[in-house]
């Protein structure tokens, strides 16, 4: 056994990983979710707003991080739509506008067909330049965004009449997969202009690095898929439809994060077992070397 494990081909480890994620997905394993403080903080920042308040949703991610951030995008858009907030979408990543379209296809177009483009939501689209884009739009949005994503004049869009800069939004929601993302929004928007309130959802890799900004520069943060699941739960608890037994009766797209926590659990346990097994081999090896 020891010899087998010591010389184990790493491809067996790969296979174990594959199974630990694939099997829970196929079996639709689902566990309860208990929201923590930071997810509540994000939820409350949106809850605090009044109907018709303008909210900027900056989708700074691409398909590579959709597994973690897609569920957050769905939940954010749903929450804003339920609150009847005015949604303004933009992106610092070239593929970001597609992520926005995907979220709109999941939430607004099928479930909120009454919301009108240009009156309830607008797609500003992508601009290149990373933090230099934030730098411009915090003081003058129309300097860069002369049209919306579809080429209509920015001045012809009713929703844009009262918006001169990012400072005019009641809240900025950022979904971030790296550079440029939440860190840049903190550095160039919420720090120099404390009136800009920023909440964010980000990948697991970034989340620990953003904690020092909480709560002064960043009041709320959803970290990785767990953050997404907690926030989904909060949104569903408040706005989800229920059947006669009081159970949530909502389409699966609103449970994406919660659903993904199933494979997450099994894979985390596998990771711990792998580290422990690796260490057992290491100590046996060291003992044998010591005794010889």
């Amino acid at each position: 056994m020891y010899e087998f494990l010591k010389n184990l081909d790493r491809r067996w480890v790969f296979l174990l990983m594959l199974l630990s994620v694939a099997v829970p997905i196929l079996l639709n394993a689902r566990f309860p979710e208990k929201p923590t403080g930071l997810a509540r903080a994000v939820f409350n920042e949106i809850e605090k707003l009044n109907e018709g308040d303008p909210v900027l949703l900056a989708f700074d991610f691409d398909p590579a991080s959709e597994g973690e951030l897609g569920p957050m995008a769905t939940a954010f858009v749903r929450h804003c739509a339920e609150k009847k907030l005015k949604m303004y979408f933009m992106s610092l990543w070239p593929v970001g506008p597609r992520m926005v379209e995907d979220a709109l296809d999941r939430v607004v177009r099928p479930d909120f067909p009454d919301l009108k483009y240009g009156e309830d939501w607008v797609q500003l689209g992508y601009k290149s330049g990373y933090e230099a884009v934030i730098k411009v739009i915090v003081t003058d949005l129309k300097q860069l965004y002369t049209t919306d994503r579809f080429g209509a004049s920015i001045d012809s869009i009713p929703l844009m009449a009262d918006i001169q800069s990012v400072q005019d939004f009641s809240l900025v929601i950022n979904i971030s997969a790296g550079y440029a993302g939440t860190k840049e929004w903190v550095q160039y928007a919420s720090t120099p202009y404390p009136d800009i309130i920023l909440v964010a959802g980000c990948t697991g890799v970034q989340a620990p690095l953003l904690y020092p900004y909480i709560p002064e520069q960043l009041p709320g943060l959803l970290g990785a898929i767990k953050g997404a699941a907690e926030y989904e739960m909060l949104v569903l608890d408040k706005y989800g439809a229920r059947d006669e037994n009081g159970e949530l009766d909502e389409p699966g797209k609103y449970f994406e994060g919660i659903r993904r926590m199933g494979p997450q659990l099994i894979a985390h346990v596998l990771m711990i077992l792998l580290i422990i097994t690796g260490n057992i081999i290491f100590f046996i090896e060291r003992n044998r070397e010591g005794s010889s």
Binding site: V21, A64, G67, A224, A267, M271
Partner: peptide
């Protein structure tokens, strides 16, 4: 810990694509 968490979510969505959109083995979104 957080990095592991992120990586697994990225794998999960690809497997969901294979099982859901391609093989139609499961249908979480109806």
């Amino acid at each position: 810990g957080f990095t592991v968490m992120g990586r697994i979510a990225l794998l999960a969505i690809r497997l969901e694509f294979l099982f859901d959109d391609w093989l139609w083995l499961l249908d979480p979104s109806g």
